[in-house]
Amino acid sequence: MNEGMVSADDGATHGDLERSVSAPPDQADVDRTLSHEEFDPKGTLALILVYFAILVGMWVFMYFVEFLGNGLTVVG
């Protein structure tokens, strides 16, 4: 059960201005209806793998170059 759905109408009747900039109209009109099983978010996976690579690269640089190369290490 979806939580507290107000109405099926979603402001679809407000014309192009409303539609192009606000929330999209009722999802009954969608081009394709994708269910959880048939939807593979491969674009998301690609984006997040790029993010992962940036994180690892930046971490290595910050820790081993910036930090360990910074002099006056606290040893005790």
Binding site: D16, R19, S20, V21, P24, P25, D29, V30, D31
Partner: peptide
């Protein structure tokens, strides 16, 4: 994708 009522190309992007 022409004819898709949801596909609105705008200069916002």
């Amino acid at each position: 994708m022409t004819g898709n009522p949801l596909r609105i190309e705008t200069s916002g992007g």
